[in-house]
């Protein structure tokens, strides 16, 4: 499975944020998207998720040798700020989600099994989501996106607010599902990118650039990334 991005261009008024991006993401890999504040990472995800109109560009998904344009249902998108319906309890939210996706989900688990999976404690499961902490909301958001089992999973700085234990669990979980998915992951934490991601992609001056990692020590890799990020046009 491959995600092919052709000529993606997006500008806000005069400011060109994404400039004619051509890139191919492949199945089975976790891509770490690095970029400075305001470089356009969130904008890039929003374009893929078709949340915002863009000037030009097409997205194709090649699966089983069939090429299709990327559909809404192909994408799971975990936003950097978690959004959950505050008037529901975590259990009710999951139930609703499972109810309406009944026919789509392949391997079904019970609600409690899902909670166990992301380590939400028993006593929290029937609490209203408005009383959840930031990190807990983040987990719920990630869980729903993962259950939906989309082909492409976009994560915008997802692990930043999770505690170390949960972050480690999430990393393991992403690794465990990566073989069937294309996972693109934006972050500002270089250690995280280096330890979790198979490929490092840099967004700078509106272009995506893959940083070749072969035979480089972590430190050398870091230097290379910093250099690439500070490059002017």
């Amino acid at each position: 499975m491959k995600l092919i991005i052709n000529h993606l261009t997006k500008s806000f008024e005069e400011k060109i944020v994404l400039n004619d991006i051509n890139f191919t993401f492949k199945q089975g890999k976790i891509y770490g998207l690095l970029g400075r504040n305001g470089s356009g990472k969130t904008t890039f995800f929003n374009c893929l998720d078709q949340d915002i109109p863009f000037d030009e560009g097409t997205f194709n998904l090649i699966k089983d040798n069939e090429t299709n344009t990327l559909q809404l249902t192909d994408i799971g998108y975990v936003l950097s700020t978690p959004n959950v319906p505050e008037f529901l309890t975590a259990r009710e939210f999951l139930k609703f989600f499972l109810d309406i996706n009944e026919d789509k989900l392949k391997e079904k688990k019970t609600i409690d099994e899902y909670f166990d999976f992301i380590h939400i404690a028993e006593e929290d499961r029937d609490k209203l989501l408005k009383d959840y902490s930031y990190g807990m909301k983040n987990k719920m958001q990630m869980l729903v996106n993962i259950i939906a089992n989309p082909n492409v999973l976009l994560l915008d700085e997802p692990l930043t607010s999770l505690d170390v234990v949960v972050a480690e669990e999430m990393k393991e979980m992403l690794k465990s599902i990566k073989k069937d998915h294309i996972i693109i992951f934006s972050t500002h934490i270089m250690e995280l990118a280096l330890s979790l991601c198979d490929e490092i992609v840099i967004l700078n001056n509106g272009k995506l650039e893959e940083i070749d990692r072969k035979n480089l020590t972590d430190q050398a890799m870091k230097d290379k990334i910093i250099k690439a990020l500070t490059e002017e046009k």
């Binding site: 249902t73 998108y77 959004n83």
Partner: peptide, 21 residues
């Protein structure tokens, strides 16, 4: 404010079938 604001960030919630139902 209390519902769609957060739910619309989920792809599944924006599927035509879900919206209309």
């Amino acid at each position: 404010m209390n519902c769609d604001h957060s739910m619309l960030t989920y792809g599944f919630y924006r599927e035509p079938k879900v919206i209309l139902n």
